[in-house]
Design a protein around this nucleic acid. Structure first.
Ligand code: FES
Ligand code: FES
Lengths: 145, 145
DNA sequence: AGGATTTAAGAGTATTTTATCCTAAATATA
DNA sequence: TATATTTAGGATAAAATACTCTTAAATCCT
């Protein structure tokens, strides 16, 4: 469902938010460090981050002490924002059976069932923020980041 | 979420079920006809069907008047059965953030949220049969197959 | 100013998925 | 039995995705 690029990006964003307690306008975190700490490819991650920077979710800074930092508070960045930038909204707009159009007016044989579930997934991603994810780290003792 | 191969296969299975009103042990339907009627690639579809035949969801027959037909009643073939054969169960077993393990004992930061939604998607696919899909064709006037 | 650090950008490579093609095998029917 | 029809399976090609590398630009620090 999520591309590898999107999975990496979400993990990284959560990690940045976790480092920046209050969440933004703090020290820049180097992409190299993030990739190393999370076991991700530096090359792949820095490439994907370029989109998040362009989209205004991250601010980047070059040179020593450079890196990236959030442009909003963790409570203001939703998972769906990241998904939209990296993967786009195709998943939430397209027919699950591959038809060109997907709407109540032009449904496929399982549209009525799928559209409902899909809406719930959308709700989940749009109601969950980086702050919510961080809270789970404390809430559950054994969460992996 | 579903691969192109899986989307094609589900549509095709629903179409076969629709042709075979009572559902199985009827005339074979040629793959060529199915592909033509649904606007799918004959080559791609026949390749994917090989898996469904091996898995026992379809029976195939070569030669004139040959083709494929269902091995069970449409009410006995669930969408999840097709998904499992074509795409596998990775979607329902793997962590949405890409971690190796996914379980309540070893959760990622959004496992608690995602596992619930994923379970509902699984329920949808495992409680919907080819017969249910066909019924929607009659139930809603404008359904595309 | 000069060197070190760090992201940006784009080109390049690898892998996976999707799609096509070709030949063989099975089989109905004329 | 000969022929046309139809799937099986292996091989190949094309496209999409994932990943890497190289060079450039910005910026800090001495
Ligand atoms: S038309 Fe198929 S899911 Fe909406
Ligand atoms: S561990 Fe990530 S979804 Fe289960």
């Amino acid at each position: 469902m999520l591309s590898a690029a999107c999975k990496d990006s979400i993990r990284a964003m959560i990690y940045i938010a976790k480092l920046q307690k209050e969440g933004y306008r703090e020290k820049f975190v180097s992409i190299h460090k993030i990739a190393k700490d999370l076991g991700l490819s530096f090359y792949f991650l820095s490439k994907n981050f370029q989109k998040l920077v362009k989209a205004g979710l991250l601010e980047s800074h070059r040179g020593p002490q450079g890196g990236v930092r959030l442009l909003k508070r963790p409570s203001e960045i939703r998972l769906i924002d990241i998904v939209e930038v990296i993967d786009g909204m195709e998943f939430f707009n397209n027919c699950i059976l591959g038809f060109e159009e997907c709407s109540d007016q032009n449904p496929c044989t399982i549209h009525n069932l799928w559209a409902e579930k899909r809406e719930e997934i959308y709700s989940m991603f749009s109601s969950t923020t980086l702050e919510d994810a961080i809270k789970n780290i404390d809430k559950f003792s054994n969460v992996k980041v």
